[in-house]
């Protein structure tokens, strides 16, 4: 069973690399420069997909947090997933701001301005930085999960505000080109295809990153458990436990089932 899973995983990794490479070619070579902005507009092919990835990550965090809070579906897996996704979201929100800033300098003439879209995005960044800080605090798994879920649900309410800010309020930032209320994309054919490809490529990137981060989070949890187990054994005076040979090497860890059997 693990065989086809890891093969599917490898396939996604490869597909992500391929999609990103193609995006680079499309954005830099195939797509024409914009009539008004010139080459600076090419940054859009990164900025928009990166922002989309951030939305997606926080959306998954919210969904996983909700699934954790609902008693019927409560599981620490959701908590790990929410945390992994939020980490990716924070990185890509920061990247969105950075790329936007680099684009704004030649096009608007400033690095930053106090416009509703920019400000709400910055707030989103800090909301989830706080969320991650809260997760860092040591606590019993379910206690931490519940705290994080509540904080995550509060933080995610800013996502729709960020997206709709340019429609609700008069801003310097342009309105959505594709996801506008009229559902009428105002973008030339090749450019639209490139942008769409960017969104697909970054969605793949998200799946890849999330898969690896989630797996890593699981291993981290396992390591914590083992360290605790070892500490308990040492307390009892059983120094060398044959079940816990080299803790730093994740590959040689016994799985949790063996461990719990050993505890019995």
């Amino acid at each position: 069973m693990t065989g086809w899973r890891s093969r599917l995983g490898q396939l996604t990794d490869l597909a992500t690399v391929g999609a990103l490479g193609t995006l680079g070619y499309l954005a830099l070579v195939v797509a024409p420069p914009d009539a008004v902005q010139g080459d600076a507009q090419r940054l859009m092919y990164l900025h928009v997909p990166v922002a989309w990835l951030a939305y997606l990550s926080f959306g998954v965090t919210a969904l996983a947090s909700l699934l954790y809070l609902v008693p019927a579906t409560r599981s620490l897996r959701w908590d790990l997933l929410a945390g992994a996704s939020a980490e990716i979201g924070v990185v890509f929100t920061g990247l969105t701001i950075l790329l936007g800033s680099i684009w704004a300098r030649p096009v608007w003439g400033v690095w930053w301005t106090w416009d509703a879209r920019l400000v709400t995005t910055a707030v989103l960044f800090f909301l989830f930085l706080g969320y991650l800080a809260l997760r860092q605090v040591p606590a019993a798994p379910h206690v931490r999960a519940r705290r994080a879920a509540v904080a995550g649900l509060v933080a995610v309410t800013d996502v729709p505000v960020v997206h709709l800010s340019v429609i609700w309020w008069r801003t310097l930032h342009q309105q959505p080109t594709v996801l506008n209320p009229e559902l009428n994309p105002q973008i030339h054919g090749v450019m639209a295809t490139t942008l769409l490809w960017g969104v697909v490529a970054f969605t793949l990137l998200y799946v890849t990153l999330l898969r690896h981060r989630y797996r890593l989070a699981g291993l981290e949890e396992q390591r914590e458990e083992l360290l605790l187990h070892q500490a308990v054994l040492e307390r009892r005076g059983i120094a060398a436990d044959p079940l816990v040979p080299v803790l730093s090497d994740a590959q040689s860890l016994p799985d949790t089932q063996t461990l719990s059997e050993a505890q019995r």
């Binding site: 707030v123 800090f126 909301l127 706080g130 800080a133 809260l134 605090v137 904080a151 509060v154 933080a155």
Partner: peptide, 12 residues
């Protein structure tokens, strides 16, 4: 230290 980081963005 955690409380200001959590509360201030919400209070913005």
């Amino acid at each position: 230290t955690l409380l200001p980081l959590l509360a201030l963005p919400v209070l913005a």
